[in-house]
Design a protein around this nucleic acid. Structure first.
Lengths: 163, 163
DNA sequence: GGTGATTGGTTACATATGAAACTAATTCAT
DNA sequence: ATGAATTAGTTTCATATGTAACCAATCACC
């Protein structure tokens, strides 16, 4: 597709303008940051956890016994962030490491009883935030949104096109 | 609406689970960060600008003569970030300040000729990124997305409900 | 028209974050 | 087997970011 829309014509004549408020990356950023900050403040207030610690717990709650590397993959965090998050969770008593039987470099990670309790306590809070956010959308619109986001994520995936 | 979906029932019996990959705030965060980082790398490579500097330029390109405070409002940045961004842009020669006639505390901000040139040069890059991101969506879907994001942003606005 | 509260903007400080260097264990090729 | 290259995870260091403290000018109002 070599395009056609007149108003986008890159060499129209007058100098180009770009309205920040309509620019998708900007809109995503503002929305995401607003949401994340509100949630982060909540987790911190209630449990002294930051977003990354919570992400690790969320994944380990679902899938115990992952290594830090696997955790990094599934949380879209880099390994340094994971290392710090799990170190903090460990000293807080929320998780425990078990050196992997075959590979002494790696540890398998598990939530402790305490961590599991906290995990269970956070879930409803997370859900509440998500519901508040989705409140104005119908069920059908939520499905649409989910689908659109999936496709955007695919387009944005590193390795695709201009990214 | 006091709800009805069975699978969401908060007190069902078994321990609750939450799949991070389906959690909207997480999905937004990952998508937004992926996009922002790719763009930021590009701006930096090509013009030595970071996202905040670019945001300021984008708004001043459209609306010259704003004060730092006004700029902060329109870029969803806090005043410290704006202060730093415009200081950097000034030393880089991209913008110039003009002390406001009536209020000696404030400065009106303008892109210099050089800044304007850079601004014009960046716009197509920004557009290209946006287009790459939106590539998989039809025109109609883009409109849907825009609408959905507007409504989410409204729901997430500080001051609304649980936020 | 002078004094306390506000506001525009910057600075200082403490914390968060990411890149790269590093250690230790493992694998691969010979 | 043995050494080079790879991988798991941590530490270091330099930079980015947010909060709170801070000046200076303006406003409110008596």
């Amino acid at each position: 597709m070599s395009d056609s829309k007149p108003s986008d014509d890159p060499v129209a004549g007058g100098p180009e303008k770009l309205s920040l408020g309509d620019f998708l990356p900007y809109r995503l950023s503002v929305l995401s940051n607003t949401v994340s900050r509100a949630i982060a403040a909540d987790y911190d207030r209630a449990f002294g956890l930051n977003i990354w610690q919570w992400r690790c717990m969320a994944v380990l709650g679902e899938t115990p016994g992952l290594t830090a590397r696997e955790l990094a993959e599934r949380t879209a965090m880099d390994k340094v962030a994971v290392s710090r998050a799990i170190a903090a969770l460990e000293t807080a008593g929320h998780l425990r490491r078990e050196t992997d039987a075959r590979d002494a470099r790696a540890s398998r990670l598990f939530l402790t009883a305490d961590g599991l309790r906290t995990y269970q306590a956070i879930i409803p809070i997370a859900r509440r935030h998500e519901q508040a956010l989705l409140a104005p959308l119908t069920e059908h619109e939520r499905a649409q949104l989910s689908d659109l986001l999936t496709r955007l994520a695919h387009a944005a995936a590193p390795g695709e096109g201009l990214w």
